[in-house]
Nucleic acid binder design. Sequence first.
DNA 1: AACACTATGTACTGATCGGTACAGACTAAT
DNA 2: ATTAGTCTGTACCGATCAGTACATAGTGTT
Lengths: 206, 206
Amino acid sequence: MSRTVAERADTLPAIAEVFREYGYEGASLSLIGKATGLGKGSLYHFFPGGKEEMAAAVLAEVDAWFEANVYAPLRDGSASMQAIEAMFDAVVSYFKSGRRVCLVGVLALGDARERFGDAIRGYFARWIEALADALIRYGRSRAEAKALAEEVVAGIQGAIVLARALDDPAAFSRTIDRLRVLVRTPSPINLGAAPGPGRRRKGLLR
Amino acid sequence: MSRTVAERADTLPAIAEVFREYGYEGASLSLIGKATGLGKGSLYHFFPGGKEEMAAAVLAEVDAWFEANVYAPLRDGSASMQAIEAMFDAVVSYFKSGRRVCLVGVLALGDARERFGDAIRGYFARWIEALADALIRYGRSRAEAKALAEEVVAGIQGAIVLARALDDPAAFSRTIDRLRVLVRTPSPINLGAAPGPGRRRKGLLR
DNA sequence: AACACTATGTACTGATCGGTACAGACTAAT
DNA sequence: ATTAGTCTGTACCGATCAGTACATAGTGTT
């Protein structure tokens, strides 16, 4: 026995990558063992609940990352549009321009959705809420902000699917850039009616 | 032996549903057997290549459906916006307001992407091309049409992910409706510059 | 140095995996 | 009635699955 002495938290990124690439069903213990360099003994030592506990731990870590690096800045930053721009930057780097897949999205599509329903729902719901919050501070109406936030989060997920499908990371970047424009653009419904927030002087809201 | 006498084509919808729900890895022969009501004997009779051939056949069928019901109308219909509206209607009904998942999207996210790379790429590439074609006929510039088509297709995929994640089919419908508005809306880049196609008289281009 | 505790590899379990082999049963043509 | 060809269920194969058991090796404490 070689005794590398690993910590539970150190294994999570590698495990996450396996779940991302192979999904919940496809992520076998042998793949996870290979990715982490750990045998079953260690894995079941850290995660007595097996695969399900591993996936839950990984989900929690992903959630915590987004909470700290994306949601929180969106919520409490005073410079709302700056926080939104930072969100897009974080997304592009986190998902590696679409080369890396969204774990939560993958789980949402598969049959593991029921098992981790609350975590999956919470991840997206809080993302949309936090983004809507920033958009309201930017000057959008509540309804408009909610709709726009939903559209942006969906767009990001779609961009990942598209980039993977076309095997073209540029498609991801293009879509994200269009979403960047979208959040600064007045609602088409308001065109010709009352001026949307995007029409106000740039310096007024930031 | 009961001898129900099935045809190969009759099994495809049931098999497709299994691949959708469980992904390529998760779709076991026993699940497929249960879904189709067929034993291994019949399955391997129809698909000597096993799972891979089943998935390929299902992909081909999905592709053919979209070709006939979505891409072709987008390409050769003279009423471009009407064809686009019909596309959205078809999408809403095909994906059952997000309750049903896009098989091609699911495969694109998993590790089966490499195996079916060409089919997956073709599905999305032709969708975007056909939609861009209709948008050009509607009056958009080539570049604008391409970008908008990419955004719409990505948006649809994202809407599916979001609706599944939130367990809320209404989220799917809302996103689709916003995309419907988007295709009729002039590009934000052109705002204040030359009038976009959406600003022309309704009767002129249809 | 003796101890408790954490981490680890190995060997095992029963179940299920994809796939093969094949005999039986039905149909259609002769 | 015989034959050929198409479908179907079942028994089986080796491989791999998730998970368990446990002995052992290292670490930190006393």
